[in-house]
Write a protein that binds this DNA or RNA. Structure first.
Lengths: 205, 205
DNA sequence: GTATTACGATACTACACGTTATCGAAAAAA
DNA sequence: TTTTTTCGATAACGTGTAGTATCGTAATAC
């Protein structure tokens, strides 16, 4: 929007008091924290400012609207796909499931998700930001693993990587979103998941 | 709240102009329709009244608050568990999956779900209403089938009905909530799901 | 020093929306 | 006809909140 140095050019230092750059991250962090443990409604600009110990002026000097702030904040959720060292497909999948469950168990992600799901419906801007930055990377990570395994013959002929990804990712999500008295993610859940699927996707022996 | 006839007693007809009973269903229907295709935020009392061609007075004479109206409306989503005639476990599961997918594909349910997910987080009243009236019946239907099958030896020893239910129900949900360019529910999706699982849960031959 | 910009705090504006109140008309019982 | 209750429409009230304006202060360049 502003930012006079369009490239990496060293801007010669503007005139007045410089912005406190750290404030940006503090505001983003406060936004995510509020979304996670107070929900979407309670995440007001006043609440964000208070939690970040910052004046609203400081927020609006960096973002044009609440919408843009939240979209940016969601972008910070990117996680690196824990490059697994395992070679055995089953071990790789297991490790991946453990990563997913650990991430869902994290209050930040686990509670953020339901909080913004409704917003994704009606807000195309959110939807694409969320999809590009959060959903797609995670899904691609496992779909790629499965696709390569299929080509190497480590999956049953005719198996569909997308469907298998749905099964693996959808199950813990269901538990998270609809806790019907069941433990959120019990011990050895990943193992149980894989156990129930493996013989259906492994090559016929 | 009111309703003078606590039992089925024929009340002798009150004095003034009688209420138009059909209005209740029209209001409920308008509420669900708005939630589904406009989202939670756009579902205001004015919008509901307008869509139902009704005055707000008429709504507030039947419900004490918007919250109670929506809770009641969600209750209308109850579906009878299509009592399957099939006896073969795999056929029963397949039929169940088809039912689920048909329901999720229904714009009303399929779009209602994401619209209220956020609300479930912060609103305990909604959460329990939704859970009791929508989630629990559907989940129990399939968990019961699986549990009985397990007892009859039609499932592999050590299989966990809850985990299998997660896999079967979670996969289409994932597609619905996070459409990453994939078709919502492609043809033969249920068959593919079951194919990927069956050999992992069937008894060892 | 002066000028300029950022800072946090607070007040203010504008609007959306749940809820209540008020209206004249309609539908029933007495 | 009179009384009672519902009806749809509309206005009004109260609150919450996004966004703006203002103020005194701090940090930097000149």
């Amino acid at each position: 929007m502003h930012a006079p140095n369009t490239t990496e050019q060293e801007s010669p230092r503007p005139r007045g008091r410089p912005r406190r750059e750290a404030a940006r991250d503090e505001i983003v962090e406060a936004t995510l924290a509020l979304l996670a443990d107070r929900g979407f409604q309670a995440t007001t600009m006043d609440a964000i400012a208070a939690r970040a110990s910052v004046g609203k002026t400081t927020i609006y000097r960096r973002w044009d609207s609440k919408e843009e702030l939240i979209a940016d904040a969601l972008g910070e959720l990117r996680t690196e796909p824990s490059t697994s060292a395992a070679t055995d497909l089953r071990a790789v999948l297991l490790e991946y499931l453990h990563d997913q469950e650990r991430e869902l168990a994290d209050p930040l992600v686990g509670r953020l998700l339901p909080a913004i799901l409704g917003e994704l419906q009606t807000n195309p801007g959110f939807a694409s930001a969320w999809e590009d930055r959060v959903v797609r990377p995670r899904r691609h990570a496992i779909v790629d693993v499965l696709s390569e395994a299929l080509e190497r013959g480590e999956l049953r002929d005719g198996a569909d990587p997308d469907v298998i990804a749905d099964l693996l990712l959808g199950a813990p999500l269901l538990r998270l979103l609809f806790p019907v008295g069941l433990p959120a993610v019990p011990a050895h859940y990943a193992e149980q998941q894989l156990e129930a699927i493996w013989d259906g996707i492994a090559p016929v022996a």
